[in-house]
Design a protein around this nucleic acid. Structure first.
Length: 553
RNA sequence: GCGCUCGUAGCUCAGCGGAUAGAGCAACGGACUUCUAAUCCGUCGGUCGCAGGUUCGAAUCCUGCCGGGCGCGCCA
């Protein structure tokens, strides 16, 4: 019996109790859940249903719990129900009803954990969107890891997700980038407001190698070439870095195409229809203060130039016109000031800012070296790039350490720690569990032991077997919660603190394969089902994080 | 100044209103002739920033304060 099955059983028992007592069934929630108590004395699962609804219907929670316990105790698979504290229901299951979880997991295979809870939702998920004027650095890398994991989690929950990268290629910064390349190619000092990293020199060299005539040419003729070639090379580098990191974007969206294609004008028309456009001082404004912004925003400056904000508005409207009903933005904490204006764009466009647009703010990554803070600055030349991080620790460790903690907390990475001591990375704890499983299954195959078509679930009665089974049973709820809250780190926490831990403990206490002259028993087969179920959950979970599940380590 | 956000063990972090707040690292002590010891078991370690409030119940929700981070352009 999975937790979801049990929760349904609790609810149906509650309905039965309500009916016999003449209570208002409408007071019951439409769904409920059971939790796993920390303390094993509190049973396999606990329900707080009596606490939640007791007062609503004017029955003391403990009294309601007593009636509920009696009814629930008659249901199949339930061994005992106790009442504790103010009205907790502590439920114990028959060994067999826990044991069947392995069958459920194995039967579902790679689909175990998937659901249809977000079915029908078309989600546009935008993340990273780093300017094409430099390599992807550590700050962006966190969003790459988290964003891509979120893409996988949302997809697993049934949503139709498009991952998207917005290329800010229309503004002054690409021009500065071109001038920096030009200066480098001609041996001139970096412009005052230019970019000075080593990569500028490298890209300039590559451009010049292809077109040596560029050197010495005046800015008028050379700059457009450096602009076009530099942009192309930089974007290619960014794309390749991300692909090597296992992060794939379905759409690379150029800001320039918004300006050139009349999208801004179209957006202004749409916003004007909704009545939120006005003109003042020769500029065109959007009255975002009608909604959730602290000041109105200029769309077209008095000199006729479109602002960055105008592109933001056009981009949002473009996304909606492409059929996305939820536009999700993953932004760093340094952009939190955008929440109000972005939400206001949606509202001004006549949309529901609570439904159609969602802005997820993540805290930044702090770097320390041997405990000393390191300030990342392009000028100081100590930018850590995605490529360097991967070089130091590998894709799996990098992705895992960036995706395993909540984006609400500012992550602190010690450069020395992650480069020197990468074997401390918790990802290996999880991967090792998978490698151990794989190794065991290999050994079974070598011994000619084939997992039987079925097994006796009641044989999986060891405490560590039951803990592992119950943990495996939680996976769908973990995925569902991660999707609903947009918190992919929950997958990592679950794999690490629950699945891998429970498997290692099980492995430590329970021999699976026969030793020496021992015979294959029914227990061998039951345990092989459990092992296979564990393999499935770890592999599925790691896949949601974009981390590999190695068969050997 | 206004706004957003964070504050949990020495360090890095979990904990979507539930019972005695957890894990890893660090420190100390145990467990390998047999399915991978990258593991397991144990000890040590806490005013959940502070103070109120809501609740049967608060690390979790609300208010105020303290401390850190960030943001407040007809910039991009």
């Amino acid at each position: 019996m999975t937790p979801a099955n049990l929760a349904d059983t609790v609810l149906s028992a509650a309905r039965a109790v309500f009916e016999t007592r003449g209570l208002d069934v409408a007071a019951l929630p439409t769904t409920t859940s059971v939790e796993r108590p920390r303390n094993p004395e509190h049973g396999d699962y606990a329900s707080t249903l009596a606490l939640q609804v007791g007062k609503k219907v004017g029955v003391a929670p403990r009294e309601l719990a007593t009636a509920l316990a009696e009814e629930l105790g008659r249901r199949d698979g339930i061994k005992a129900v106790e009442i504790a504290g103010p009205g907790f229901l502590n439920i114990r299951l028959d060994d067999a009803s826990t044991g069947v979880i392995a069958r459920t997991v194995v039967a579902a295979g790679s689909a175990y954990g998937r659901s249809t809870q977000l079915e029908g939702q078309r989600i546009n998920l935008e993340f990273v969107s780093a300017n094409p004027t430099g390599p992807i650095h550590l700050g962006h890398t966190r969003w790459a890891a988290v964003g891509d994991a979120l893409r996988r989690v949302l997809t697993a929950a049934g949503a139709e997700v498009t991952s998207e990268y917005y290329i800010n290629d229309a503004g002054a910064q690409v021009e500065r980038f071109a001038r920096s390349l030009y200066a480098s190619a001609n041996g001139l000092p970096t412009p005052e407001d230019g970019y000075g990293g080593d990569y500028i020199g490298e890209i300039a060299q590559r451009i010049v190698a292809a077109e040596p005539d560029l050197v010495g040419q005046p800015e008028e003729t050379a700059l457009p070439v450096f602009d076009a070639r530099g942009y192309e090379l930089m974007l290619t580098e960014i794309r390749e870095s991300l692909e090597r990191f296992g992060v794939h974007f379905d759409v690379w969206f150029s800001e320039k195409t918004l300006h050139g294609g009349g999208a801004v004008e179209h957006a202004i028309e749409e916003l004007r229809k909704q009545g939120h456009i006005f003109e003042d001082g020769g500029a065109v404004w959007l009255r975002t203060t009608d909604f959730t912004d602290d000041k109105d925003r200029v769309l077209i400056r008095s000199n006729g130039e479109k602002t960055y904000f105008a592109a933001d508005a056009a981009y949002y409207i473009n996304k909606r016109e492409r059929g996305f009903d939820r536009c999700v933005y993953l932004l760093g904490a340094d952009h939190h000031g955008y929440i109000g204006r972005l939400k206001a764009i949606a509202a001004c466009a006549g949309d529901d800012p609570k439904q159609n647009i969602e802005i997820l703010i993540g805290q930044l990554v702090n770097l320390v070296r041997a405990g000393q803070p390191v300030r990342l600055s392009k000028r100081a030349g100590n930018i850590i790039t995605l490529d360097e991080l991967v070089e130091a620790v590998g894709v799996d460790a990098a992705r895992y350490s960036l995706a395993r903690s909540s984006t609400d907390s500012a992550l602190t990475l010690d450069i020395e720690e992650i480069t020197k001591n990468s074997s401390d990375n918790p990802v290996f704890y999880v991967q090792y569990a998978h490698a151990r499983v794989s190794s065991l299954l290999r050994n079974a195959a070598e011994k000619g032991i084939v997992r039987a078509d079925d097994y006796d679930p009641a044989l999986l009665s060891h405490d560590r077997e039951k803990n592992l089974l119950k943990t495996l049973g939680e996976f769908p709820a973990v995925v569902a919660t991660a999707a609903e809250l947009r918190e992919p780190h929950r997958i990592a926490v679950y794999l690490e603190e629950r699945v891998a831990t429970d498997y290692h403990r099980f492995y430590d206490a329970c021999q699976v394969l026969p030793k020496g002259e021992e015979q294959v028993t029914d227990l061998t087969h039951a345990r092989l089902w459990l092992v296979e179920a564990t393999r499935t959950v770890i592999a599925n979970g790691l896949d949601l994080l974009g981390v590999s599940a190695p068969e050997r380590m």
